[in-house]
Design a protein around this nucleic acid. Structure first.
Lengths: 326, 326
DNA sequence: TGTAGTCGTTGAAACGGTTCATTACCGATG
DNA sequence: CATCGGTAATGAACCGTTTCAACGACTACA
């Protein structure tokens, strides 16, 4: 039924009377077009894939919300995939998305598995990196300057007089963690301080539980050399550290100052409101989705670009300077 | 190419030599089957829809994780939809899922919009209600006994001697909120207490911000009649209340005890660990997905069922009995 | 050696849209 | 009145897979 198709897709080229007759029939029969058929003929469908590192991290759900805002307005469906930091899961999901012939994929890759992504792109699946700067100029990416974020956090702690600082984060494989650490080191260098001021506490993941463990390790150090401040690679870790410290009656910020990263809503809601490095989470998702849709709609005029947002330090109680009582 | 299809779907009926020859060709050409074509031919695809009330609520992300575990193992894709409590968005997503010819839909409906869901079911889309008991016997549902949960929380507060208690929750349209409140009332009745003991503080949503506002309202009451305990319809609200109280130097649980609902990870991680009513979040998702897959695979033998889990009170510091200092 | 039966491969139809070439119709013009 | 131009509806091919009927080769048995 060619006319029906025209009514649905190019209503202007069909006569008004016919159009209304067709529409009446559609609603009477309860006709719902089959997207698979459309997709088969057109080559690509109305869905796109979103692959994130951890659904349980509010940072990513906020990013997802941004993606959803944008795609929903464009009538697109999002296939939500959670790689969970597992390369196998990531790979399996990419296979699945390829079979689905999605328009494109928004992904925070686990490591720099560019070969896989480039292959995908070569097959006609648009790829936009999320929260990760693309090392290649031929992929769009939307990221935040993590090095700067680390620097901001560290400078803040240095300015508050801290000279023994712990960096809690991991696994090192994650570029975000590495960059934030590097930024922190840069702040040290800028202040002409010994690199030893910052002591790294690696964690197996970026979860609340990992943060609690890290707190225990920090408290295990002799009081005289113990860190007076902690900078965490993300807020989940920071919340875990906060909990671990509080349990041992170590006061934040009086005894130990604390700065997180991401500024998730729970950071402000913590009983000791958490200082954190804010990232434009929803805008990250919106921008990535917009880039993808733009490339999908006008592949010729599209220029690949690397959008980089600036992070912003939000100082709250957890790192406030407190006049020492002793 | 009938043989290729057989190699992929019923490898046993094809001769070993042919099979390996086909597989070799597949990997050489980098052939990836087109799921749209498969879906078109077969009628239904390998995707299913998940519609939740709020992506930003860790309760739902944990449920989603459970769904994903189960479907991922079955090679299914999940189209993740966030109704955000907006009936229009919910409806738009259901349209989209219908066009996608998903196998089924897992949904926490906003209100009892059963007509829409039944229509969907009649068109061959399997429907399983999530975190909501089905009033009809012809839909599967997986839920938690919210009334019991409310009762457990309330009984706990009553046993700790509280006689002026605030219930923070809303909007009332949400069945979960209504049921938890009803359960709380039941506990009052069981203890032969005046229903006035429980005072309701309605909120426009179940967010941290709404909880903060509610805390302000509670603190606005004269000290003599002010609640000594707060029961929140979910943990986001409870975290907001906790934050609001702490900011005003009201101590939890010393001055006001606090119980939340859902036992999200952040509840235990709060600086005053939150007492909460635990729900088997991941199992909720797993079970719903399993029911759906089971019905999809053997529609004849499938019996619709209403799975109801039991909630469990987890007592932490926020509602611990504290010997009053005055 | 002929025939029935088995196993495996091949070919074509079908799914439900989109797209484009073709046709039908109408009014305007020579 | 015939022709032309333009608009709108029709019909058929096509997308890539599944499914099933038809077919071919081979074995077993009489």
């Amino acid at each position: 039924m060619g006319t029906v198709s025209n009514v649905l897709n190019r209503p202007d080229i069909v006569a008004p009377t016919t159009r209304s007759r067709v529409l009446a029939a559609i609603s009477e029969l309860g006709f719902v077009p089959n997207d698979a058929a459309r997709q088969l003929r057109r080559g690509r469908g109305r869905t796109l894939g979103l692959v994130v590192l951890d659904v349980a991290n509010p940072f990513f759900t906020d990013v997802a919300k941004g993606v959803e805002d944008t795609t929903g307005a464009a009538g697109m469906a999002v296939i939500f995939c959670n790689s969970d930091g597992d390369p196998n899961k990531e790979s399996a999901y990419l296979d699945l998305l390829e079979e689905q012939r999605v328009q494109g994929v928004l992904i925070t890759p686990i490591d720099d598995a560019n070969t896989r992504l480039v292959r995908l792109r070569d097959r006609g699946v648009l790829v936009v990196l999320l929260d990760r700067r693309s090392p290649r100029p031929d992929l769009c990416s939307v990221s935040v300057n993590d090095r700067l974020g680390g620097e901001l956090a560290m400078r803040h702690l240095i300015e508050n007089g801290h000279r023994r600082i712990a960096f809690v984060g991991g696994p090192h494989r994650l570029e975000q963690v590495r960059d934030r650490h590097e930024g922190a080191m840069r702040a040290l260098a800028a202040a002409d301080l010994d690199p030893e001021v910052l002591r790294r506490f690696d964690t197996p993941g970026t979860t609340v539980a990992a943060g609690r463990d890290a707190a225990a390790r920090i408290l295990g150090m002799p009081r005289s050399t113990r860190a007076t401040a902690v900078f965490c690679a993300n807020d989940l870790l920071a919340l875990g550290v906060l909990q671990g410290l509080t349990r041992q009656k170590v006061r934040v910020p009086d005894d130990i100052a604390l700065v997180g990263y991401d500024d998730i809503d729970f950071a402000a809601a913590a009983a000791v409101p958490l200082s954190s490095v804010r990232q434009p989470r929803q805008r990250l998702g919106q921008t990535a989705a917009t880039l993808l849709l733009e490339e999908a709609n006008s592949p010729e005029t599209h220029r690949h670009q690397q959008v980089i947002f600036e992070p912003e330090l939000v100082v709250r109680e957890s790192s406030q300077f407190v006049r020492s009582g002793g």
